[in-house]
């Protein structure tokens, strides 16, 4: 289940042409809490040229937009670090 979700996320995030992409499943930290059943908790580190010149809000929106409906269906919570190649 978890690996499927990570694979789906990676497919969607390919849109941002990541130079580095690490997704960690943190769901086990949240087992049993309200909402934990309707999607996993993930941490995401993504490095892309497309973030150059973009502020943090814009970068996070790009990640959310790329993930699309996964945000509603597969992901309950997502922690994001979105970096440019030089950061």
């Amino acid at each position: 289940m978890s690996e499927q979700r990570i694979t789906l996320m990676k497919e969607k995030l390919a849109l941002l042409q990541p130079l580095q992409l690490e997704i960690t499943d943190d769901s086990h930290h949240h087992a049993g809490h309200a909402g934990a059943d309707n999607g996993g908790h993930f941490s995401l580190l993504i490095k892309s040229d497309q973030f150059v010149g973009k502020n943090l809000v814009q970068r996070h929106r790009m990640v959310y937009d790329a993930l699309g409906d996964l945000m509603q269906t597969q992901i309950h919570a997502l922690s994001i670090r979105a970096l440019t190649p030089n950061e």
Partner: peptide, 24 residues
């Protein structure tokens, strides 16, 4: 806000971000 998650923090009417950006 075109922002799918909570929390959302606004300063002077502008979204500054969610938890990650605020902590950063």
């Amino acid at each position: 806000a075109n922002w799918p998650t909570f929390p959302q923090i606004y300063v002077k009417g502008e979204l500054i971000g969610g938890c990650d950006i605020t902590l950063e």
